[in-house]
């Protein structure tokens, strides 16, 4: 497929994103990103975007269809609220990668900073290196796969997201516990590692999930207890 070159040294961010958003399909190569923010944000058609260099905040934000590949690093909010499709970076990401993502796959070959996968709602995230503190905080659905180590408070206030870690976990957050790795989890992990192009043995991973102790308020009712006692109920 012929690639169309979009040079951010020559065109504005708005021209770049309008071109990508208005293309029904096709392959594009973005050159000279120079850490620009919101590169390839809001893509909702089946385009393939290759970015030569590092990007700033919100690269591929709210991504819906197609593929974005970054040859470099990404700053805060990589693929935030991704709905579907694939975002892959060869370097590292800073804070909040894949935040609130509803679907699709985010692959980070390097490390990811704090709050990777925060409030994730169905996205799958595979990190080749380590993740920072409070990763998968309030994670609702989806899978976070970490081939390296996880920093403090992993999975704090977790809902139904799954976390798989191959390395060490500094500490677990509130209501996050180690869980049994059942056959369906091995199957999911095997598939995600393959889709991410990562060479790792699922048997080396530990699964973490929610203890579900924080799902509801715990409310006492002494008066009702006493009333029941007095009636012998």
């Amino acid at each position: 497929m012929t690639e169309t070159i979009l040079d951010l040294a020559e065109i504005t961010l708005r021209e770049l994103n309008q071109t990508l958003q208005n293309s029904a399909n096709g392959a594009f190569r973005v050159t000279n990103p120079r850490g620009a923010h919101a590169v390839a944000a809001g893509l909702h058609t089946d385009v393939e975007v290759h970015i030569d260099g590092s990007v700033g905040y919100y690269c591929a934000g709210m991504h819906q269809v197609g593929t974005v590949r970054v040859e470099g690093n990404a700053s805060t909010g990589l693929a935030e609220n991704i709905m579907s499709g694939k975002v892959h970076i060869t370097g590292s990401a800073t804070m909040s990668a894949g935040a609130t993502g509803n679907g699709g796959l985010v692959v980070i070959e390097g490390n990811s900073g704090a709050r990777c996968g925060i409030s994730m709602k169905g996205v799958d995230i595979v990190v080749g290196g380590n993740v920072g503190h409070m990763s998968a905080f309030m994670g609702q659905a989806g899978n976070l796969v970490v081939l390296g180590d996880a920093a403090n408070d992993l999975g704090d206030s977790l809902y139904e997201a799954n976390i798989f870690v191959r390395g060490k976990v500094a500490s677990l957050g509130a209501d996050c516990i180690e869980k049994e790795m059942r056959a369906e989890h091995v199957e999911t992990l095997t598939r995600l590692l393959a889709e991410a192009g990562m060479d790792a043995d699922p048997a080396d991973f530990t699964r973490f999930g929610s203890a579900r102790e924080l799902y509801n308020f715990h409310v006492d009712d002494i008066d009702a207890e006493l009333a029941a006692r007095s009636t012998g109920a």
Binding site: Y57, Y58, G61, M62, T76, E80, M95, I118, F137, N216
Partner: peptide, 30 residues
């Protein structure tokens, strides 16, 4: 479940980040 929503945005903190967030939103809605 008793849902307790987050009080901080997950992908920005402070006015400098907010400026970039607004750029992103403007890009997405053209």
């Amino acid at each position: 479940i008793d849902q307790r929503s987050a009080c901080r945005h997950p992908d920005w903190t402070g006015p400098d980040d907010l400026a970039i967030k607004i750029v992103e939103l403007r890009e997405i809605v053209n």
